[in-house]
Each structure stands twice: as structure tokens, then as C-alpha cells.
Write a protein that binds this DNA or RNA. Structure first.
Lengths: 190, 190
DNA sequence: GGCCTGACGCAAGTAATTTGCTTTAGGGTG
DNA sequence: CACCCTAAAGCAAATTACTTGCGTCAGGCC
């Protein structure tokens, strides 16, 4: 029942979706997010506005789609050979990416135009996947590890909460501390 | 530099603000959030649309204002005579309030139309204040207590994260567990 | 009590959104 | 491979929302 159809690559829908997404990214860079309008995007994408309205409903849902795409991690987390180091480093990068002005903007957009919580769920899945990778590696090495959910509660949630609700004074050190505390009581704990 | 002036009660601005906020709440109940429009609110409040646009900028900022008001806690947390019980009970109520459809909607609105993060900060302050009260009482009793920030990281943040990103399967038991874990290592811990 | 400022009302102009109808691309079937 | 059938796109008119300039008024401050 989503407005985002599962289009096969190569079809016309796919080309339109591609063109529109590209147009959004280009225009975001050129004129800035607050000046963006649906007709402007449509013109750039070589599409009529009504197409966008019909497919995405409104600007916010479209931006939400684009934002989620950009929040998808591009590479698996770095491997430092030890859970504590992996998690610390991942948390730090995660925080830096999300707390940067551009990251925060994407995050807001992703949450914003998301009536059914679908895109938000996707963001959460990305993080869970990354953490799953880190933990799986540690298990492979024979380390004793916590649940993915525990790490989400102890690391991801605090970072997100602070980014969204109290955006001041976020440092890499904070991310490190969270990672360490999340591992207390496990073999990887300090 | 906010668009929300600190109007003294009794002035005309105050009356307009009051009328508009009331109109928003009434119409939210009557027609539902997605059907809300600025002209509709203006008509109900007995005000011209341009007044709303000039004062709030757009619908989202107005809704954000209204939402923050409704998220303000109405009473101090219950006193059960023991930190663990106080925190458990508070966390449960907090979760229930925020996870309910209406609470989630307010939360989203509050975050949503909030360019400067001002309203989000206010929400966080509300929670911090409530927790501060709970902890202060415990100190009064001679209990050993964690920081407000620790409780926020361990209880508030996970609840909020799940509400925003993974809205399924939230139960009071989860809130209890978070409260208990937040107090581990303190005199109130189980 | 009389100015002065900031906020509101009004109305005209501009831009965005919705909608009904037509056209077309491209997948499915024989 | 050609033909239909449907989902999605184009087009254009109608509606609705938003912006803006200017006149007016309330109410705070001498």
C-alpha cells in the first residue's frame, strides 16, 4: 500500500524515479533545501509536476525517500581486529556522519515525510545491519558479545536522541564512552 | 530570533495566539491532522491566514508549537518511596504517553517544524526536569543515584529511538527493564 | 491622554497542488 | 512476434494555498 512501487530496472517508472531523485540531489546542492519546490524538481527531471505529486504525494515524502537513500551506509564497518575497537570506531563515525549539518538534515527529512514509519524503519535497519556485522566478526574471533538490540539501545539510541533533541556538544569522545559502556561485562569490555 | 514572540497575557497578540492554538487543537480532533490547512485554522480562529503565515511561517512550525505545549508534563512524577519504583513507573508512563498514536503524532510534529531545534530542546528539558525531580527525591532519602544524563541516555533515549524508528512491540516491560538497567550499580539497583 | 511601534486585516498577485481526461510505454499472452 | 491491457505519464484547467504591499488599529510608554 506504499506509494513507492517496486519498479523493475529498465522500465519507464524506473527512469522517472531515477531522474527525479537525481534532480532532487542536484537542486539540493544548487539552491538549498528550503528553496526546493516540486515544480522546480519536475522541470529539472524533465517530468510534469503531477507525476511527482501522484507518485510521492508531496515534497516531504519525496525528500524522505531521497534522504533514506543517502543514509544507507556505503561500506561495511572497518575491521580493527577487536570488538571494542570496532564498535568505538563505528560509533564515532556514525555520530560524525549523523551529527554533521548535512547528516542531520537528511535525518530530519527521512523522519519527516514518513507517514507509515517505513523509511525510519529502514534507517534503523541500516544501523542494525552494521552492528550485526561488527558483532558477527567478534563472535567469529571467539569474543563474548552483547545483542544487537543492546547495542542499539546503548549506543545508537543515545546518539540519535542527542542529535535530534539536544544537538550541542556532541563529540567523538561521547561516542567512545557509549561504545565502552555498552560492552561492560563482556569479554571485550575494558 | 524566534518567530514566537514572548507576548504578555492580555495583549492582542496573546489573544490571537490563544485563539489559533485552540483552533488547531479543535480541528486536529475534528478533521484529523492530514486535512489541516492554514486557511482552515485561520477561519476557525477568526483571523486572516496572513496573520498565521507571518507569525509562524508555515503550518509545520505552528503544529510544532502546539505539540510542544501538549507534551509538557502536567504533574511531577509519582512518589513511590524508592528510586527504582519511581523510575520504573515514570519510564512506563513516559513510554505509554509517547508511544500512543496521539503522542507519537505530537512528537513528530514537535520535531518536524522546528528549524532551530528549539522545540526539540524543550521536549528534552521536560524529560530532564522530571528525572531531576525523581533523582532529587532519592538523594533526599539517602539513596545513591546516577546522573540525569545517564538516565536520559539509558532510558529516555532508547524509548524515543524506538518510538521514532521502530514503533513495533513497545511494552511497559521494556520500560521497566531500561529503568532497572539504568540503576545497576547504584544502591537502588536490584 | 497622546504618540509610536508592532501586529493585524484586507485584497490582489503569484505559485503550488489537485484532478479529469488522454496518451503511451512496456509486460504478458497467445 | 504481434497484439492487447494496464499502470503510469503527459497535459491543461480549476482549485487552493501562499506571499506581499499597504492601510488600520490596539496597546505599551512616556
Amino acid at each position: 500500500m506504499s506509494r513507492k512501487p517496486m519498479v523493475r530496472p529498465g522500465g519507464r517508472s524506473a527512469r522517472v524515479q531515477q531522474a527525479v531523485h537525481t534532480a532532487v540531489r542536484e537542486l539540493q546542492a544548487e539552491v538549498g533545501r528550503p528553496e526546493l519546490t516540486v515544480p522546480m524538481i519536475a522541470a529539472r527531471a524533465g517530468v510534469t509536476p503531477s507525476t511527482i505529486y501522484r507518485r510521492w504525494g508531496d515534497l516531504q515524502e519525496l525528500l524522505s525517500d531521497v534522504a533514506v537513500e543517502r543514509l544507507r551506509p556505503e561500506a561495511p564497518p572497518e575491521d580493527h581486529g577487536r570488538l571494542l575497537d570496532d564498535l568505538r570506531s563505528w560509533a564515532e563515525q556514525f555520530l560524525e556522519e549523523m551529527a554533521a549539518p548535512t547528516g542531520r538534515a537528511y535525518l530530519r527529512d527521512a523522519l519527516l515525510g514518513d507517514p507509515d514509519g517505513d523509511n525510519a524503519g529502514r534507517c534503523s535497519d541500516y544501523a542494525a545491519e552494521q552492528i550485526g556485522t561488527v558483532l558477527a566478526r567478534a563472535v567469529e574471533r571467539g569474543e563474548d558479545v552483547p545483542d544487537v538490540d543492546t547495542v542499539i539501545d546503548r549506543v545508537v539510541a543515545p546518539v540519535m536522541y542527542r542529535i535530534l533533541f539536544r544537538p550541542d556538544g556532541l563529540t567523538g569522545a561521547y561516542a567512545h564512552r557509549l561504545a565502552e559502556e555498552a560492552l561492560e561485562g563482556f569479554s571485550a569490555g575494558r
